[in-house]
Simulated assay, not measured.
Amino acid sequence: MVRIPRFGSDYAVPLLEGTSDAVLATGYGHFRGTAEAGARGNFAVAAHRVTHGEPLRDMPSLQPGDEVVVQTARWTYTYELTTGGDDLVVPFTQTWVLDRLPTNPSGGVQPPQRPGQRLITITTCSELFHTDDRMIAFGVLTDKQPTTP
């Protein structure tokens, strides 16, 4: 489950493995080959801005310091965004954002560049009805707690 307090106290969207159409129709998808939630490296996820519940429709309103809470069966991870929701827009072909330590080849917006970090990368379409570009937000893990029923 993904919770983003800025989007309201009732915001809770399922998180599934993979980024197929079927997965993204349900909620957030975890990019295969990126770190697991809470692990060292880059835990990268995607979700729709429009259709299928519009989980990231308000991504442009995200600000540095906002929390993203990822709840798994065993652990609840809290990430703090280091970039805003619309600080970085890249063509969908820019896969560097999924790297273990995403490093912007243009030298622009990127996560803090410290090896061994536990990062989150959130991706969604930047235009509401066009899919050539992606909005990207980066964050760092700040807390890990056991998930309570």
Rank of each mutant, 00 (worst) to 15 (best):
A25R: 13
S20Y: 02
R40W: 10
G41L: 10
S20W: 01
G41D: 13
F43D: 10
A25D: 15
R49P: 03
R49D: 09
Y28E: 09
A35M: 06
Y11Q: 09
A25G: 15
F43T: 09
D58S: 11
M59H: 00
G29D: 15
A37F: 08
A12Y: 00
G41C: 09
V13Q: 09
G29M: 12
A39N: 14
A35G: 06
L56D: 00
H48N: 01
D21S: 12
F31K: 07
A47D: 04
A44E: 07
S61R: 12
T26G: 12
F31G: 10
R57E: 00
L16A: 15
V23R: 07
H52P: 11
P14W: 05
H48L: 01
R40D: 14
Y11I: 05
Y28R: 11
V50C: 08
S20R: 02
N42C: 05
G33K: 02
D58V: 02
L24K: 04
F31E: 15
T34M: 03
P60A: 03
P14D: 09
L24A: 06
G18M: 00
E36F: 09
V45W: 07
G38Y: 13
H52I: 07
A44R: 00
R32G: 15
D21Y: 05
G33W: 06
S20Q: 03
P14Q: 09
R57I: 04
L16R: 14
D58E: 10
A12F: 01
P14M: 06
A46W: 03
G18T: 02
Y28H: 14
E17W: 06
A39E: 15
R40L: 12
F43C: 10
H52L: 05
Y11C: 07
V45E: 12
E54S: 15
T34E: 10
T51W: 13
G41Q: 11
E54Y: 10
L15Q: 02
P60H: 02
V23M: 05
A25N: 15
Y11P: 15
H30D: 13
F31A: 13
Y11E: 06
D10M: 11
H52M: 09
S20K: 04
R32N: 15
E36R: 12
V50T: 15
R57T: 00
A12N: 11
T51V: 14
A35H: 05
P55A: 07
Y28K: 11
R32V: 15
G29S: 14
F31R: 08
A47Y: 06
R32P: 11
